[in-house]
Simulated scan of single mutants.
Amino acid sequence: MKIAVFASGSGSNFSAMMGAIRADKLPGVEVALLVCDRPGALVEGRAEQESIPVFSFQPKQHADKLAYEQVILQELKKKQVEWIILAGYMRLIGDTLLEAYQGRIINLHPSLLPAFTGKDAIGQALEYGVKVTGVTVHFVDAGMDTGPIIAQRVVPILEGDTRETLTKRIQEQEHQLLPEVVRLVQEGKVKLIGRKVGVQ
């Protein structure tokens, strides 16, 4: 199964995916491309170290989302990408990619959706004062973090937690959960029926 990882930042989840592949925890999965919307982001260096092709672009250099997603789609087709994995990609996916990869785009989000969608979900959880938050992997639809949920992990918020301490614990769960879901997808064990996701 050829996948493309979309990321905008440091790429810790990209590295977790590559580590799982090296450890033979994802047999049959190949990262064929990294797509990054922030040229120079740390994730690009991680991909280069892994000898993974990088497609980097600046959205402002394109007329609109349609224009840059058409360019992305061409790159995905060149690499014969079958699934898109969003791992810290900070842009909404538009109709071009949603239609081409319907039911084959998943996203990792640092909260227990549907709570705390959008940016700074960790900060939102701390400010709201909830006692637990977590990690969600879900299918992507046209909304912001509104797609059908595949899997979730709970992360308790401890007394005295800061953004840094909570982020570290959430990332530990992200690095485990995302490769696990990709493995289930590759094995054909994830079935999307309407809004419900069945996991064997």
Rank of each mutant, 00 (worst) to 15 (best):
E127K: 14
M144A: 14
K65Q: 14
I72E: 03
D141L: 09
P39N: 02
P39L: 08
V29L: 12
T162P: 08
R195D: 09
L158K: 11
L108Q: 03
P27Y: 13
G94S: 01
D141R: 07
P148D: 07
V155T: 11
G28D: 10
E174A: 10
G9F: 10
V43D: 03
L126F: 14
V140T: 04
Q70T: 06
S10E: 14
D161Q: 07
P179V: 13
D161A: 06
E187C: 06
E99K: 15
S8G: 08
V5N: 07
V140Y: 02
V135I: 14
P179G: 08
V31S: 04
E164H: 09
Q74E: 15
G40N: 05
G19D: 14
D95V: 12
M18W: 10
L26Q: 02
V199R: 14
G188D: 06
H138W: 13
F55Y: 15
H138I: 13
G129I: 13
T167R: 02
I3C: 07
P53W: 05
E50F: 12
R91S: 02
L33H: 00
L98F: 00
A142L: 09
K131S: 13
V137M: 10
E127V: 11
G129V: 13
V190T: 01
E30T: 15
G129A: 11
V199L: 10
V132L: 13
I84D: 02
Q102F: 09
G143T: 09
T146F: 12
V5Y: 02
G88E: 00
F57P: 05
V155W: 04
L97A: 02
G123H: 10
G194D: 01
G9D: 03
G11I: 08
Q171L: 15
R46T: 12
L26P: 03
H138L: 12
I93M: 06
V182S: 01
R104M: 03
Y68R: 03
G19A: 13
P148A: 15
S56C: 03
S51L: 13
P59R: 15
V54R: 00
T146R: 06
K189F: 06
L66P: 06
P53Y: 05
